[in-house]
Write a protein that binds this DNA or RNA. Sequence first.
DNA 1: CGTTTCAATATGTATATACATAATCGTCAT
DNA 2: ATGACGATTATGTATATACATATTGAAACG
Lengths: 245, 245
Amino acid sequence: MSMAGTVEAEGGGSLHQRILSDINEKILSGAWAPGHRIPFEHELSVQYNCSRMTVNKALSQLAKAGLIERRRRSGSFVRRPQSQAAVLEIHDIRIEVEALGLPYRYERVARHKRRSNTEDRALLELATAGPVLALECRHFAGERPFAHEQRLINLIAVPEAADEEFMAVAPGPWLIGRVPWSEAEHRIRAVAADRHIAAALDIETGAPCLVVERRTWSAEHPVTHVRFTYAAESHTLVARFRPQG
Amino acid sequence: MSMAGTVEAEGGGSLHQRILSDINEKILSGAWAPGHRIPFEHELSVQYNCSRMTVNKALSQLAKAGLIERRRRSGSFVRRPQSQAAVLEIHDIRIEVEALGLPYRYERVARHKRRSNTEDRALLELATAGPVLALECRHFAGERPFAHEQRLINLIAVPEAADEEFMAVAPGPWLIGRVPWSEAEHRIRAVAADRHIAAALDIETGAPCLVVERRTWSAEHPVTHVRFTYAAESHTLVARFRPQG
DNA sequence: CGTTTCAATATGTATATACATAATCGTCAT
DNA sequence: ATGACGATTATGTATATACATATTGAAACG
């Protein structure tokens, strides 16, 4: 390894990391604009005084992250940012409440086991009728209701749930870990509180609420559908975009 | 390469891909529960009849994706799904409207160039005063207002914006591509329409609205802050969880 | 009995090498 | 001109190898 002039010493992380963040910086700062051809693997391997494999791994990762596009025989090119994709972290409600420094309390309002009706099947995207568990719960932050939860659990997918009363433990934490879930879909919207929700959250009828609905699948079966309703003042969802890991 | 008994021929993709999706499947199906120690690199390299490097690359990728945790000397373990992370795609409004099959129309309501006041600095997270461009726009789906846009652009970061009237082109599409952005933060909440918003969206005062605020940074500077307000009936955000890419 | 030391082990990173694959360019014959 | 074809080139994938590093478990020692 000839050290001719290169800094090399500093760096902090591995070479892999350094190449990655260098190129990242060039792209995000605009120094390399969209469409710009970045140096060939061979050139970078000379510049960083390393093997082509090391460069290749870094560039492959950038390509997978969508920052560059690689074309055989032509080289690698900076892509323009296209989709505004953001990562939305949806935490357990207990954690959110405790992050606010408030005492958390959970209350089960209702629990019904029944054969799925038409609405249940629509919510769970079930093709055929079968047993479901319908739950209604409230989550408190201190004295005030924080969130209202309406949940359906597909008992075909989670038969053990039929034996659980959910008086002490909320269905969310109960399901996590017990059921491996492969996919989830969230829908977020604003609604006016109806009388039922208004009473549950102790707000005015017609007051704006944030609704987060989640449908979860596990391999084959729909597992659960849950609708959380938050009073407008109490809740903001935060999503972050981050181009790399 | 001894072919002793292994299938090898089939597969479709590369070995790398096959290892990746095999393990993925095992984890998501629940066959390998959280905490389970997956086979050592050495064992997998025997099983797939390939080198340790190939296995290592696949496992490193799974580790980066958060599906497994790797511990030196101990092995690699399946992690429990911890954060409900979902990918939220926020499209350009024109695209959303056109996806609904409705004609899109854009209207610039107001444009002010000024020295940033206290509120501007709070929204943009600016430390010092400087020139900003404040825009107010409406986006229509057919005849009806679809979204109301309030935007601040930091003219220190984007001086060219000072010369643009934004009569024909919306600031969102104008900024994309022109400014490389390294980070963005979204805040999503429900509010009641005030008189101004109600008039702009042609809804009742106090009606629930979905508000999406986005703050964007580019390397050093804050670039823009934008608040989109949607009438409740008109809009639902959809976010998807997907364990891999 | 507790602590230190040391070897074994699994992962982390990098290298040189090899061949496959796709795209492009130039050449040459029609 | 035009089309066929082969050489060139850059990336894609995999291999064998080497050494670094963190952690565990057991042996040696006070």
